[in-house]
């Protein structure tokens, strides 16, 4: 450690020396993935921080603060693309906040009754299985429709269209969400965000993993808008989470700043990559990430912590490389087209 001591940084609160390039790398990877899928990615950061040597108590709080900052960077970029429907985000925030409180109260109530740790984990696994089934079934249905020549959606062929049925509920006030491009009862996003909020509060997660598919399948957002709007919500809930964890003394601020530096670059890549990806490409990669997350939780439940961490880290690496490839290929193509256009004009 003496020869490479400059690679280690002392964390004043946790009292540990941490390999700082590892922090930058974690920030970068989660920035890429979070910007592309529209989620915080706590399930990726926490095991990574733990492997670097952070005590678990600090890993979660530090992760939460980093997610808030990272989502802010991604939201700014998505906002420029027009991918953030602020009105929808704010309406959903009402349901999310009440829902998270209810979820937290349910957990506290169940805690008083007895052990609920494994129950929570299995409920989480159940929901992840449901989400991945939904994503893959939707993809299969969309592919089948496209092969049959059926094109019914505004932005191309769609698989699952449950939101169309839900949009028929016309309880006032009816709201026009301009960026998302639909009119529906305000109660629909409030109710859906309340449900995802209850689950997030109950499971003790940020909720991006549940909200993104809910925005697509139940509310009817185009995938790109769902990603941007969800990040806006993750940013707000992350700042709140950062405050509560900091008040409990569970945040290592220096690590947050180091991670954010990597995340700033990663978030640009992940966010810009959505420009070159089709909605179903994002959904499919999201489904794979959810399956890996689910398997890692099952492994952890049976005491296989090391294989669970390896699985998570390999998933992060592969998905990250896939997104970077999309971004650079798309950007290179755009620049080539631009150049060809300029030359043609001359």
């Amino acid at each position: 450690m003496d020869t490479a001591s400059w690679l280690y940084m002392y964390m004043p609160i946790a009292g540990v020396n941490i390999f700082w390039p590892g922090l930058v790398l974690i920030g970068f990877s989660v920035g890429v993935i979070g910007g592309f899928f529209g989620m915080g990615g706590a399930w990726m950061v926490t095991p990574g921080l733990n492997i670097l040597g952070f005590p678990m108590a600090f890993a979660i709080g530090t992760d939460m603060a980093h997610i808030a900052g990272k989502s802010m960077i991604s939201t700014m970029r998505h906002s420029k693309f027009g991918n953030v429907d602020y009105k929808l985000g704010l309406v959903m925030l009402v349901g999310t906040m009440i829902g998270i409180e209810c979820g937290a109260q349910i957990v506290m109530y169940l805690e008083r009754l007895g052990q609920i740790g494994s129950v929570v984990r299995w409920v989480y696994v159940g929901f992840l299985a449901l989400i991945s089934w939904m994503v893959f079934y939707d993809y299969y249905k969309a592919v089948s429709k496209k092969r049959a020549g059926v094109v019914e959606g505004e932005h191309g062929t769609e698989g699952i269209t449950w939101y169309k049925t839900l949009h028929k509920i016309r309880i006032p006030p009816m709201v026009h969400f301009k960026h998302a491009g639909f009119v529906c009862s305000a109660w629909l996003p409030i109710f859906v965000s309340f449900l995802t909020g209850v689950l997030a509060g109950f499971l003790g997660i940020g909720g991006g993993l549940l909200r993104m598919p809910a925005l697509v399948y139940l509310i009817g957002c185009p995938t790109h808008i769902a990603v941007g709007t969800d990040l806006f919500e993750v940013m707000i809930s992350g700042l709140y989470g950062a405050f509560t964890y900091a008040i409990k003394g569970r945040i290592e601020l220096v690590a947050v700043f180091v991670m954010l530096t990597g995340a700033a670059i990663g978030a640009q890549i992940g966010t810009v990559a959505t420009k070159y990806a089709k909605g179903y490409g994002i959904r499919l990669a999201f489904g794979i990430a959810v399956v890996c997350c689910m398997i890692s939780i099952v492994l952890k439940q049976y005491g296989f912590s090391a294989p669970a961490a390896v699985l998570i880290l390999s998933t992060i690496t592969l998905i990250c490389l896939y997104i970077i490839k999309i971004m650079f290929q798309g950007a290179a193509q755009e620049l080539r087209d631009k150049k060809a256009g300029t030359q043609a004009q001359m």
């Binding site: 970029r77 420029k80 693309f81 027009g82 991918n83 969309a142 592919v143 496209k146 959606g153 932005h155 191309g156 062929t157 769609e158 185009p222 995938t223 790109h224 808008i225 810009v272 959505t274 420009k275 089709k278 909605g279 179903y280 755009e334």
Partner: peptide, 10 residues
């Protein structure tokens, strides 16, 4: 171009 994008689902 970082100000516009086309939404294509499939």
């Amino acid at each position: 171009d970082l100000n516009s994008r086309k939404i294509v689902e499939h």
